[in-house]
Amino acid sequence: MSAVLSAHSLRKSYGDQVVVDDVSITLNKGECYGLLGPNGAGKTTTLRLMLGLIEPDGGELSLLGHAVPRHAREARLRVGVVPQVDNLDPDFTVTENLLVYGRYFGMKDNEIKARIPALLAFANLTHKRDVKIPTLSGGMKRRLTLARALVNDPDIIFLDEPTTGLDPQARHLIWQRLHELTVQGKTLLLTTHFMDEAERLCHRLAILDHGRMVAEDSPRELIAQHIEAQVVEVFGEQAEAWVHEHAAHYSDRYEVSGETAFCYVNDAQPLLKHLQAQHELRYLHRPANLEDVFLKLTGREMRE
């Protein structure tokens, strides 16, 4: 089976700044693949390269069997895109947005109109079909953007931070819909900086930092390979003093961030036993997750 998308050694610089540095990714049919990274890691630029919207400085790229960017137009016939910033047509109703967007794919009006009821149902927007965009909530706009990306029945869907700015209810509904799409055999490529989103949705993911892929695997494997199994977070006024004396002794590895010490351990029992006797300290014991991997690989400094 040929890959839905294969990128080999993609590179892109703006001036002296290398934004995408030797990125290679292969997507299989029906998989949900995540691009994780801090702000400015090159996630959106990678998506734009893959859509053929910008010219790479180097590398090979094939999308749905078409060489990109040379034949990007043919490839995009079978692609759906959910952009990071909403760009629905504010002058149109919900239905008109879908109709007008379908025409860009060369679809006939009756062909699009036949698809609209199912798209509206998928987006839970049937009752809003004749409403203008400015009156929709943020979650409704995202769902409509997702429905719009499906108007041409694409084989692969690119989603750039699909749930940023949504409340938990709206996020869960989007997640449910994205899961349904993978069950239907659609391939998804999404960027996010929500670790729970990536862990829940993605079959595989890549962590990007400064334009480079620093790790790639399933969420479970990334956690197993890159980090100790357990985390004990120790906090409280005395935490700093405690770290100096005991942290190194009781943990395989530890990091301090603000007033919290993150102690990474494979066996938490000795540390927990010790902490139970320290009444001035508070602590939280939990399994290691993707965020721990992410912070280990990309560091804790702020990215602006």
């Binding site: 919207l53 016939l77 910033v85 760009n87 860009y104 794919f105 060369g106």
Partner: peptide, 14 residues
């Protein structure tokens, strides 16, 4: 403002 062009460029239109 409306990023209409951006939306259109994600389709087969250039």
């Amino acid at each position: 403002e409306q990023r209409t062009w951006e939306a259109i460029m994600n389709t087969p239109v250039t």
